[in-house]
Design a binder for these strands. Structure first.
Lengths: 145, 145
DNA sequence: GTAGGGCTTCCCATCATGGGAAGGTCAAGG
DNA sequence: CCTTGACCTTCCCATGATGGGAAGCCCTAC
């Protein structure tokens, strides 16, 4: 199986497969005579594992730990659970943070007329009730080059 | 006021102030004889505006739009509200995504013994019930150089 | 005069992913 | 036999927002 087929079969892009190999998340695959990467079922399972872990929000570093635990038959499930529990806490923290933003913004948006007049509580909040500086907004917007 | 004082007064790091200037989010400050950046109250207000917008999760691009609206006295509050409403929707989408992760993970973690035995529903889920490939986990972990 | 702290620019790293160029390889079809 | 197109290879660059740090200039206090 070439990298394209492994990508198809696992849902991980070829680009990412090469990257995972480069950073040592997966081991270098075998190569065929023409120097193409060659994959088997085992490798596809590993890629699917990574894909699933990523879709649950685990970082590549956490994914690496989980992968190692998966392949360690003498693991203790407590080790796995610890990684998961930590990640859940992290997700909850980020969710709470965003919910705070939503709460504040919803309130402000609710108080904003959203009409043709310039008065806007959203801007007032952002400005901390300071008057806008007279100079116009910057236009060029050339990002770092 | 030098950049360090402006950073102190606004809560935006000196590093970031320079960056914002570089990408055109704020206009280049005046310079003193010794080529130091010089800031006044107006600039600090702008920086605080940016800081507040960032703390509400707005991207720098959205922040730029809000900044322009703030400085446009003939703005329509509808324009501001549109930016906010879009951002709220975005936040809600991301929250929902993460809540899905939390839900799945909480269930799996709850079902996991978290003891000294190797059996682990978390790994089973990640693996899609495939057996772990025999090769040990990769160790080197040398990131892209 | 020198020590320290602040400022300047410039480069690099993060995290995970994608885009794209330049070139090798292979199969099908004219 | 040659071309075309679809693969594959490596290499470099970009994203978004931020921080770290080096090398060198400026100013003030001792």
């Amino acid at each position: 199986m070439n990298i394209g087929q492994a990508a198809e079969a696992s849902g991980v892009s070829a680009k990412m497969i090469r990257y995972y190999e480069q950073i040592g998340l997966i081991r270098p695959s075998a190569r065929s005579d023409n120097n193409y990467r060659v994959y088997g079922e085992d490798e596809v399972h590993v890629l699917r594992f990574i894909k699933r872990a990523r879709s649950l929000g685990f970082s590549l570093e956490e994914t690496e730990r989980l992968l190692a635990l998966w392949q360690d038959r003498s693991r203790e499930s407590a080790s796995v659970k610890a990684v998961a529990v930590q990640h859940i806490a992290d997700l909850k923290r980020r969710i709470a943070e965003m919910e705070g933003m939503v709460k504040t913004l919803s309130h402000l948006a609710h108080c904003c007329g959203g009409d043709g007049r310039p008065d806007c509580p959203i801007l007032e909040d952002l400005a901390g009730h300071a008057p806008p500086p007279t100079p116009a907004a910057p236009r060029p917007r050339r990002r770092a080059q």
